[in-house]
Computed example of a mutant assay.
Amino acid sequence: MNIGILGAGKIAGVMADTINRMTDVKLYAVGSRSWEKANAFANEFAIDKAYGSYEELVSDDAIDLVYIATPHSHHYEQMKLCIEHGRNVLCEKAFTYNAAQAEEIADLAADKKVYVAEAIWTRYMPSRQMINEILESGVIGEIKTMTCNLSYPISKIERLIRPELAGGALLDVGVYGLNFIVMHMGKEISAIESSVMMHETGVDGQESITVKYEDGRMAVTTHSIYGRSDRKGIFYGEKGYMIVDNINNPQGIDVFDCEDRLIRHVDVPEQISGYEYEIMESLDMIRQGQFQSKSMPLSESIYMMKLMDDIRKGWNKK
């Protein structure tokens, strides 16, 4: 099956290298805002077709799936462009800028009978089920508290500090913390509280978010564009605790007892980059005639966008 990449930046390059190392899939085309950039990208990754506009890319009927790898602010219009041309879509996170845009995309995809999914890779990885199986085993007992964090020194990257490009910590890295919480703690949320420090450009530079559950559980996640965090997710139970190394791409899971003794270590499967799982599932769903992902259905993308909308409302951020 043929993949087309919309956008020719850093993330697109990681995906291109990943696809080239996969089997039963071909990196067929790339589209950029200029032919020169698309052609350079095509030469670097041995891609057959280079298009100097997104319209040309999505008009190619040989493409089975378009992967969108552009700033958050562009996702809504570019997904609409793909869907209106009958192209199946795998769009980078954050899916859209807000829930209203996500709902419109879901309605349009249903009307046109086109596959659309959000490419938040942690939803597709084997580690997701591995973490949940350990939690459900009861090895650390009842869990009332969980913490996680994700921060990188990325405040010098233009798209992350420009409001018109939907910049800020929440949509770029906070989306991983919130997805990690929902994947492993559920959606029975009673309240969300947050504190934020705004960047001088008007985007959120760093925040702390507390998610309260109806049954008394609580999860806290922090995100920043200023410094590197340890990226750990920690579950606290009555019999011990569990540490997930890197919530953005889990590398391993360690389980400790109440005396801080390591009682279990679990490695995650080897991977190309981690991006391959979302590609494999998308192509499987398309082959089966399905129009949504099983790991990240559009209802989940809309739900996550609503959570982030509510958080931003609390900051008086439109």
Rank of each mutant, 00 (worst) to 15 (best):
K49T: 06
N39S: 03
G237A: 10
L65T: 02
D245R: 11
E259K: 07
E259T: 08
G186R: 13
D215Y: 05
V89M: 10
R231L: 12
Y54L: 06
G233M: 12
H74S: 13
S293P: 08
K37T: 07
C148G: 08
L6Y: 04
L283A: 10
G174N: 04
M15K: 09
M197N: 12
Q78S: 08
N98V: 15
R261F: 07
Y303K: 04
Y28T: 05
E188W: 04
T145N: 15
H72A: 08
P153M: 12
G31Q: 02
E259N: 13
M304R: 13
L283F: 14
A99P: 10
S127N: 14
D257A: 03
G216P: 08
E200S: 12
A50W: 01
C258W: 03
A119C: 12
D24H: 12
I83K: 06
F180G: 05
K306G: 03
I140D: 03
V116S: 06
E84I: 05
S155K: 12
T96A: 13
T96S: 10
T210H: 06
I243Q: 00
S53C: 00
A8T: 09
H72L: 01
L160S: 02
H74I: 09
M15V: 04
H265L: 07
P250H: 09
S293R: 01
F256L: 11
V139G: 00
E36I: 04
E278P: 00
E55F: 00
L81V: 10
E56D: 08
I311P: 01
S224W: 11
M130T: 14
Q101W: 12
V30H: 03
I243Y: 00
C258S: 09
V89K: 10
S151A: 15
M296V: 14
G86C: 10
M296S: 12
M218G: 06
R264A: 11
Y124V: 12
G252N: 09
K212T: 14
Y277D: 11
M197Y: 02
L6A: 01
K26F: 10
A69M: 04
N39L: 00
D60S: 05
Q290E: 15
V58H: 03
N179F: 01
D257F: 05
V30Y: 06
L298N: 13
L90H: 09
K10S: 15
